[in-house]
Design a protein around this nucleic acid. Sequence first.
DNA 1: CGATTCCCCTGATAGC
DNA 2: TGCTATCAGGGGAATC
Length: 315
Amino acid sequence: MPELPEVETTVRGLKKEIIGRKIINVWTDWPNYFKKPTTKTAFSKCVVGWKIEDVYRKGKNVLIELSPPASKQTRHGAGNKILLIHQKMSGHLLVGKWRIKSEAGRVDDEKWKNEKWIPSPFRGTITDPRNRFIRLIFFLDDGRILALSDLRRFAKVLCGTKDRILNSSHLKLGLNPLGTDFSFEKFKEVIKGKKARIKTFLMNQSVISGIGNIYSDEMLWKAGIYPLTPINEIDNRKLRDLYEAIKSVLKKAVKLRGTSIDDYRDSKGRKGKYERELIVYQRDGEPCPRCGEKIKKTKIGGRTARFCPKCQSKN
DNA sequence: CGATTCCCCTGATAGC
DNA sequence: TGCTATCAGGGGAATC
């Protein structure tokens, strides 16, 4: 599932691939993706004809900034728009050649439906991004496509003016843990007075943005903190360890281009390499490399937490 | 206000 | 073989 390192990897790939391209058409077989505007027609209207100016990440969101077509430009300049994509659990964005070149731009729904079910790799590859879970496609003016592969259909997309999207309820974000301003003081400031359990806190996007289940498990193991510990019971030394773990785990994961536990792939269909670094996530039953105790799992707010019962203490 | 629960989905797996 | 139940998980919205 794409968390900060996976989204960062995707965005870096997209930056190299799609900036300067114009979106010429949109196709989907799952209109529920559209949260704003909510219909396929209105959504298409929002992006078609607009040019991709920039791609960046906020938390786990991919933001694609669009500039208006000539027909929409006014003397004062029409404002840019933002196309926001959240990949949620199983989504990943792929860029590739649209095989039937002559048809790019005028999508025949039925034809495409048949095409995408042609036997192809389970997930997209570098040369051909097609796979049976592609449910949303942006056709680009150079004959390539930006496709969303999304097994669980959990992803969401929004389009609107920069102002509207950045202030939308879908983008209530907190600190960027890889930002230069994410200091230990800032961390202590946002954690101060909180009573939630530490794992829940780490995954709360409105406080610190970008951490999900995989990396919170790994960070807490590294800092030696039991995931259900109430925040106010963690001493200053452990908080410092945790702060360092947040940064080091995320940095290393970005360097290794993310984790491909389920079906995460980068924009060219490649797997991440952080999977081999995982110590607790989905490793229950295996020995803890620090003390040898078997990794256990527990539930926290409907989610699974993995930890070492011996060396992840409560304070 | 903060904390918790529900709910959107589908593929894998276990049990009968 | 084939059915059913369970689980995984991000996060907005509803509820407590």
